[in-house]
């Protein structure tokens, strides 16, 4: 989870600061070395403003940012297309994961760990197992590793980290997301019927939207088709209103980040009554298995 936190800290800054870079890549397929270096320096400066283990890790990764640049260049014109907000996030995450993998010794080191993990996984699953790419198997494996390999720091210990290894190396899990530049998944939404309080989020979101200034608020409504009548395309709207699309997406991304912070604060407020109650996860964070 530590990696995911680092990745998301970097993703937030890169997407927020990358407007010109995304536009240059969309227009020309690439960026100049000078523009790229200047961009990475701006990202580093922002990360330095919030010191901590995740920022330190992020800064060390920026030493070789080529995988990120390649991932963005692979997305090309789609970085400024109708799905730009989703495409940018996916491309940046993919590039950052490749940077991380390169920094920790590349696939050679991870492949070595995978070799051992694969062996243990097979013994845990038994000879008849047909598909090991399931959370149920990762759970068994995590429990086994905590019990029988507690002192081996090279092996993963959490379900989430084990899942990352399987996604990267195990054929049962299908093609690795890191190898594909095409897919853009719709971000996950919890099931309404299962989490009825999700309904409240609609109201929370409206409240958070109303706190945005006029322009970012209307850009969000336009892009997510919440206007009446509905705007059929962001580019059509920009053309009609004479708005530079680079500016549109910059303002939109800032607005989405602000909405994310606002909604998270409101969601945390819903669960204030849990404060002081020692939950399973709190007990674990005092004595983590990894």
């Amino acid at each position: 989870m530590e990696w995911r936190r680092t990745r998301e800290l970097m993703r937030a800054r890169i997407v927020a600061l990358g407007g010109e870079i995304f536009a240059d890549i969309a227009d020309h397929g690439t960026v100049t070395d000078a523009a790229w270096t200047g961009f990475i320096e701006r990202v580093a400066k922002q990360l330095m403003q919030r010191p901590g283990p995740a920022s330190d890790c992020a800064l060390s990764l920026l030493g070789d940012s080529r995988p990120l640049r390649q991932a963005l260049e692979a997305s090309g014109a789609r970085l400024m297309g109708e799905d730009a907000p989703a495409i940018r996030v996916v491309a940046v995450r993919r590039g950052l994961t490749r940077m991380r993998n390169a920094a920790i010794g590349g696939s050679e080191h991870r492949a070595k760990t995978w070799g051992r993990l694969d062996q243990i996984s097979r013994s845990v699953a038994g000879p008849d197992a047909t598909n090991r790419c399931t959370i149920a198997h990762f759970r068994l494996l995590a429990e086994h590793l905590r019990e029988h390999h507690a002192s081996d720091r090279n092996l993963p210990r959490t379900i989430i980290t084990i899942e990352e290894y399987f996604a990267e190396f195990c054929a049962d899990c299908g093609p690795s997301a890191l190898d594909s530049d095409a897919e853009v998944e719709r971000p996950f939404l919890p099931v309404e019927a299962d989490l009825p309080e999700l309904a409240r989020s609609g109201r929370f979101l409206e409240e958070c939207l109303s706190q945005l200034e006029d322009e970012p608020g209307s850009f969000v409504r336009v892009h997510f088709k919440m206007t009446d009548p509905v705007e059929f395309s962001t580019s059509g709207y920009c053309q009609r209103q004479n708005i530079d699309r680079r500016r549109f997406y910059r303002v939109l991304e800032d607005a989405l980040s602000a909405l994310s912070t606002c909604l998270t604060t409101k969601a945390e407020g819903l669960f204030e009554h849990l404060t002081g109650f020692q939950s399973g996860s709190e007990q674990w964070s005092r004595n983590p298995g990894n």
């Binding site: 989870m1 530590e2 995911r4 936190r5 998301e8 800290l9 937030a12 907000p85 989703a86 996030v89 759970r139 995590a142 429990e143 905590r146 959490t158 379900i159 989430i160 719709r186 971000p187 996950f188 939404l189 309404e192 999700l198 309904a199 989020s201 609609g202 109201r203 979101l205 409206e206 969000v220 997510f224 088709k225 919440m226 989405l256 980040s257 909405l259 994310s260 909604l263 998270t264 399973g280 996860s281 709190e282 007990q283 674990w284 964070s285 983590p288 298995g289």
Partner: peptide
């Protein structure tokens, strides 16, 4: 109200940063 804005909600949640405190995923 939530259905109308569910795509926006998905994008907003997708921009959440992982909390500092880890949890026991088991």
């Amino acid at each position: 109200s939530s259905r109308k804005s569910s795509n926006l909600l998905a994008h907003v949640l997708d921009r959440q940063i992982e909390p500092e405190q880890e949890f026991d995923d088991l």
